[in-house]
């Protein structure tokens, strides 16, 4: 066993939820709901309104996963890593920034938009909001329909580079100027992975890598993030809603 899953959170076109909360889990192709601070954060948070859409989506799902794992509240920064997969990243923000650049022949591009033209800025926001000082990076092109980011997180834990990782995927879907691709379904799912959880009662199950590098949940190969959520909920005696998009 490399790690255990201690928390799950999601925000998809079908709504927001967490492993131990009543709302069921399902994923459809959208459209995504408008993401508001109140969905996941109980207290006012001025910086939420300044964030780009990718950050709002990602942080909301991360908040649900942290709450589910009992790690939402904090007073001291924690050495927890963040790893997020994305296919389209911040292309929506790239477009918004470039439009400010084109508006007057490059005279006044928006600095606040430019700050969000790196997908890893979502992780910077999460690090600040949740007090997470572990390694953080984005991996492409890892979406809801594959398991790459879980594999990478398990490798990081196995190599000793991380002990606890908030790991998941976050995508707004294909921007209007790109061909649609089912690789990048809109939505965000995050898992809390811990190598030595001191709260065994909160464990959904165990994750491993087999010799071929395939991800196994409780010993069974798992091929994408949606399936992993469903297996976790099954393991906890809960069921996902039917009709999830593979």
């Amino acid at each position: 066993m490399i790690a255990t899953i201690t928390g799950i959170g999601w925000l998809t076109a079908d709504g927001i939820g967490a492993g131990r909360r009543p709302a069921g889990f399902s994923v459809s192709t959208g459209p995504m709901p408008a993401v508001t601070r109140e969905m996941a954060f109980p207290d006012p948070m001025p910086r939420f309104g300044r964030m780009d859409d990718l950050s709002r989506l990602g942080l909301s799902a991360m908040a649900m996963a942290l709450k589910d794992a009992g790690c939402f509240e904090w007073s001291q920064k924690r050495s927890i890593g963040i790893l997020a997969g994305t296919v389209y990243g911040c292309l929506h923000t790239d477009r918004a920034f470039f439009d400010t650049l084109c508006a007057d022949s490059g005279q006044s591009p928006s600095p606040s938009l430019f700050a969000y033209t790196l997908p890893s800025c979502m992780l910077g926001e999460a690090a600040i909001v949740f007090g997470l000082t572990g390694p953080s990076c984005i991996v492409n092109d890892a979406g809801l329909t594959d398991i790459t980011c879980i594999r990478v997180a398990l490798e990081n834990i196995l190599s000793g580079d991380a002990g606890t990782v908030l790991c998941g995927v976050c995508d707004l879907g294909a921007p209007p100027f790109m061909r649609d691709s089912r690789k990048g379904l809109p939505g965000a799912i995050f898992f809390m992975l811990e190598n030595h959880p001191d709260r065994s009662e909160t464990v959904y199950g165990h994750l491993d890598l087999d010799t071929a590098g395939k991800v196994r949940f409780n010993g069974i190969e798992t091929i994408n993030m949606i399936e992993l959520v469903e297996k976790c909920l099954d393991s906890a005696g809960r069921t996902a809603l039917t009709g999830n998009t593979p």
């Binding site: 890892a142 790459t148 196995l158």
Partner: peptide, 28 residues
């Protein structure tokens, strides 16, 4: 073999080399 892109702002290259080294060091 498996491939991925790492994006971590101006530390992307450093994290990529570190990740590659970790994979070899641990026998993965």
């Amino acid at each position: 073999g498996p491939m991925l892109n790492i994006s971590a702002a101006c530390a992307s290259g450093t994290l990529a080399v570190g990740k590659a080294a970790a994979l070899i060091a641990t026998g993965l």
